[in-house]
């Protein structure tokens, strides 16, 4: 009896909290579907009188170039940094040398720094090598500052591959690269998926580098969304449609590959 009551309470609390958590998506979706005249403060909570996709068309029109920029940025940056992280993780877990752990900790620190503390030199540097205000510049930045987290994830991942596997391969005369290609790589598909999802989401959502390194036609989607939503002059239905468009890719990744997303989240959080 008491158990049933407490279960009931649990459901009530969970449902109440869920409803709170669903306020933003609810408001986002209904606002974005309202025609322009329907968007008024008084009727913010009401369902749209009729479905209207005009705001999506307008938001899409405004954000498309930036959406493409983000794709050009995210895909190469994710792939390169995953590859790099995998190699680093491999070395740091399976080819430990003296001081390797120490170096790993030093690398890891780079994951936590506020990027403000490297921005000023970074911009000067990018400027001097001609990559300022360019997508390749941003790719470079995300690859470099993605090293710590991808290395960490792969290192933790490879720690689960038993050393005996490598040893027997070494017995067979396989060297560093051969082991990587024939043993580690095939075993790290999950690792690659987890890291790729993690990097994809992070780079997609990143703002500070994007807003300081690129301008106008090179800007990724998040900067464009922020510019679009800068004041109430751009109508709310368009802002909300824009926000949904900008959020959709990462949301889809979460919906389709949520399991790996959570694994990445746990792997990226260092072991306590």
């Amino acid at each position: 009896m008491a158990k049933a009551v407490s279960r009931g309470t649990i459901y009530i609390i969970l449902i109440a909290l869920s409803l709170c958590f669903l306020i933003p998506p609810y408001v986002m979706v209904i606002t974005s579907l309202k025609p322009f005249d329907d968007v008024s403060l008084e009727h913010m909570w009401a369902l749209p009188s009729s479905l209207n996709f005009q705001s999506y068309a307008e938001a899409f029109d405004k954000l498309l170039p930036n959406l493409l920029n983000t794709f050009y940025l995210v895909i190469p940056a994710t792939l390169i940094s995953a590859l790099l992280g995998s190699l680093n993780g491999y070395v740091l877990s399976k080819w430990k040398f003296r001081g390797a752990d120490w170096i790993f900790t030093m690398i890891l620190f780079g994951m936590f720094i506020p990027y403000q503390s490297i921005l000023i030199p970074l911009i000067q540097f990018l400027r001097s090598i001609g990559l300022y205000n360019s997508i390749p510049g941003l790719i470079f930045v995300h690859v470099v500052y993605g090293i710590p987290v991808t290395t960490l994830m792969f290192r933790n991942f490879y720690a689960n591959i038993p050393d005996s596997l490598l040893e027997s391969a070494q017995m067979d005369g396989a060297g560093f690269l051969k082991i990587y290609r024939h043993i580690i790589m095939p075993l790290s598909i999950t690792g690659f998926v987890v890291v790729a999802i993690w990097q994809f989401t992070n780079i997609w959502n990143e703002f500070l580098f994007a807003v300081t390194i690129t301008t106008t036609d090179q800007q990724p989607i998040m900067v464009a969304l922020q510019n679009l939503a800068g004041s109430q002059v751009v109508h709310w239905n368009i802002q909300m449609a824009g926000a949904i468009l900008a959020a959709l890719p990462t949301l889809l990744v979460y919906i389709l590959l949520g399991k790996y997303f959570i694994r990445g989240l746990l792997a990226g959080s260092v072991k306590g």
Binding site: Y72, I80, N133
Partner: peptide
């Protein structure tokens, strides 16, 4: 993987 990322970054640098 590599070629794809090369092409993409090349694309973006010419389009910019």
């Amino acid at each position: 993987l590599l070629t794809f990322s090369m092409i993409l970054s090349a694309c973006s640098s010419t389009s910019g």
